[in-house]
Structures are given as C-alpha cells and as structure tokens.
C-alpha cells in the first residue's frame, strides 16, 4: 500500500475546533509541514495569539506559548534573543496584529527581530463574533459596522505587509492565500522560505495569509473562498511584497 496522505508530525493527534471552511486549520497544517520538512519540530517555539487560534498550543507538536492579545511580537522578541538558533514563530490574527498589537509588530519589525510572523488576515474579528477589524474591506458588513465599513467613518483598511515593508528590519514579506490548491501550494512555499530565511539570520520575516471566516462573513465555505479571491485579493495584492537583496 502506498501512503497518499498523512498528517504532519508537526501536529498533535487532536480534533480541531475551527468552523467548516475556516482557513486556520489549513494554515496550521502548512506551518506544521514546514517545521517537519526543516526538521525543527523538536526545537521550534510557536507563540499563539488571542483570537480563534488561541488554542493553537493544543494542536502543534512543538513547544508553544500563548501570548496575551497583540503582544506575541514582544513575547517572541525575548524568546528569539535568548534562543537564537531555534525557529521562533508568531501566529497572529488581524485584530491581534493590526489593531491592539500594532505597536508590538511595528517595533519588532523595526528592530529586525529574527523571527517569523504568520499573519492570518480574515478581515474580521472571528472569535468575538464578527466585529470590524482594521482590515475589514470598505462596504463589508460587521457587527459593529452594520451599514458596512465606510471610508469617512472608519478609514481605509490597513495593508500590513506593505506598511511593515517600509522598515529596513523587515527582510521578507509575502502575501498569500489558501483559497484553492495552487494558492495553497504557494502559501506553503512562502512559509517555508520565511522559516529558512529566519534560520539563516537575515532579519524579520512576514507572511500574510488572506483567510476565510465563513461563519462571520455569513457565507458557505465555497462562497467564502470565492469572495476572498474576488474582493480581498483585489485590495490586498498577492505575491512577494519585499525581499531584501542578497537573501
């Protein structure tokens, strides 16, 4: 018998709590596979956020630390500085990273902290039930923006990968999504590249993953992936945003 598929050794044997069609589960798998392929499950330290992925520590096979809301980059700064040869990763949602933790991510990037951030941008506060995030698209409905996000009232959505790329400390930023298999494969390559660059010590590495939250978007999983490709990817361009020469 040939093995067609197996769960990554980077994940524990647990049932995930994520909703059907949620991107979190897929991204967990990609991160775990990259850790496994690089042979670092035994040394990696993952910092999880506050948000739907708050239980990520129950799923990953490496050591994990749950940070409070938005502070994962500060937590990871101390870990990486004291464990320089180990892979250190923060996994953060858009409320966590782009709103309450905006200062922490900007300053970690500015200092060129040598860890990787996997940024789960689903344009909504998932865990608390669909409130507006800084990344919510113009016109997109949220429980705290019932008429839809308006530019005059809320400002335009923030493009974190581009903003952070203005900082010299950031060595690599790419935006990906997992809405279909070709994109998923690209996403995995980006995460693996970020990890490899981290381990070679070039600087701060950042992968933004446009993600689906069918539950709070009020869509089926298929509709959500379609909406993501048509609307989110139009505002948040996919691809490499920055790659420092020589890396």
């Amino acid at each position: 018998m040939t093995t067609v598929y197996r769960k990554s050794a980077g994940l524990q044997d647990r049932e995930l709590h994520y909703c059907p069609g949620c991107s979190h589960g897929i991204i967990h798998k990609l991160v775990a596979e990259c850790m496994e392929e690089l042979g670092v499950i035994d040394t990696a330290i993952l910092v999880c956020p506050v948000g739907c992925s708050v239980f990520a520590g129950n799923y990953f096979a490496c050591d994990t630390i749950e940070a409070i809301h938005g502070r994962a980059p500060a937590v990871a700064t101390a870990i990486k500085r004291t464990h320089q040869d180990q892979l250190v990763v923060t996994y953060q949602g858009d409320g966590d990273l782009a709103s309450i933790g905006a200062a922490e991510i900007v300053h970690a990037a500015m200092r060129g902290e040598k860890f990787t951030t996997v940024f789960i941008n689903n344009a909504i506060y998932g865990m608390t039930g669909g409130q507006m995030a800084p990344t919510t698209l113009l016109g997109q409905h949220a429980t705290t923006a019932p008429q839809g996000r308006q530019k005059e009232l809320h400002g335009s959505p923030i493009r974190m990968a581009e903003m952070l790329s203005t900082l010299d400390g950031l060595a690599y930023a790419e935006r990906v999504c997992v809405a279909d298999i070709p994109h998923l494969n690209k996403a995995k390559k980006a995460i693996k590249k970020a990890f490899e660059l981290q381990l070679s010590g070039v600087g701060f590495t950042f992968v933004e993953v446009l993600s689906a939250c069918p539950t709070n978007w009020g869509m089926t999983p298929l509709e959500a992936n379609k909406w993501l490709l048509e609307n989110m990817a139009a505002y948040y361009p996919l691809g490499v945003i920055k790659e420092v020469q020589g890396t």
């Binding site: 990871a76 101390a78 004291t82």
Partner: peptide, 25 residues
C-alpha cells in the same frame, strides 16, 4: 540581553516571553 522596548506593555510581555522559555528576566 537588554532591549529598550517600545512601551511598558511590550517590556512586561518580553519578560513573559523570556520567562516562559525558561530564562531569568
């Protein structure tokens, strides 16, 4: 390791990271 943090919030969370990974901070 010495880091001048961006705020006291960041500083205490850096302490959290160092401590959680087993280092006196």
């Amino acid at each position: 390791v010495f880091v001048q943090s961006e705020s006291e919030l960041a500083a205490i969370n850096m302490v959290y990271g160092a401590s959680a990974s087993g280092v006196r901070a």
